[in-house]
Simulated assay, not measured.
Amino acid sequence: MRRFSRIADFLEAVGGIANRPEILAQGFTPDLIRFAVQFGSIQPLCRGWYGSRALPRVVRDAWRNGGPLACVSALAFRGFIEAVPGDALHVCRRTRGHRLRYANAAIIHWSDEALRSGSRFAVSADTAARQAVQCSAASSRADDVTLLAQHLDALQREAS
């Protein structure tokens, strides 16, 4: 017997994003998933992943490109740097993940380790800062990112 009467309730309970096997494990059927999508109570994000209607737009856009926010996009989402309108979205994907046929102009960071570092919304701040320091597409933000990376490194050393 499942704990949730609606898939949308389950998605809200797990933070807003779940994959198909997680939804099926709750006792929902493939038909119920299809109906929930058709009636708009949940939204398909990318192959095998679904999100709640309440997801922030930038997170939804990242998942339509295959994963959570990464690099400068994750830093902006977490409030560490200012978002720049018109900048390409940076997204983290599994190293052996498939390429999306209709992906937008997102910059993909392929890393299994980075995916495990944060949440389903965005990679962790220190991982995002490390990505941004190495990312050629983030070079216009180099000063902001370098200062942030140094600050996060100092915090991490103090914590150890």
Rank of each mutant, 00 (worst) to 15 (best):
R57K: 14
F4E: 02
A137F: 09
E22F: 02
F77K: 05
H98R: 15
R157K: 15
F80P: 02
W110N: 09
A18S: 12
W110E: 13
S41Q: 05
F77P: 02
R96G: 14
S140G: 15
S52G: 13
G79P: 06
A114D: 15
I81H: 02
S136R: 13
L24D: 03
Q150K: 12
L115K: 02
G27K: 06
F121W: 08
S160D: 12
P21N: 07
A70V: 06
S140L: 12
R57T: 14
S140F: 15
N65R: 02
Q150W: 08
Q43I: 09
Q150N: 13
G79C: 09
L152T: 09
S73A: 13
L100Q: 13
A25M: 12
A105G: 07
F10K: 01
A105L: 05
G27C: 10
D31A: 10
R47W: 09
G40W: 04
P85K: 05
W49I: 04
R6Y: 11
T146V: 14
Q131T: 06
N19W: 08
R116C: 10
P68N: 11
S73M: 07
A103F: 01
V123W: 00
C46F: 11
V59K: 00
V91R: 00
G97P: 01
S73E: 07
A36N: 04
G66T: 11
N65E: 14
G27M: 08
F35C: 04
D143T: 14
S160A: 15
N19Q: 12
Q43P: 00
L32M: 15
A62E: 00
A83D: 11
R101Y: 10
T146K: 15
I23T: 03
Q156D: 10
G48N: 11
E158Q: 10
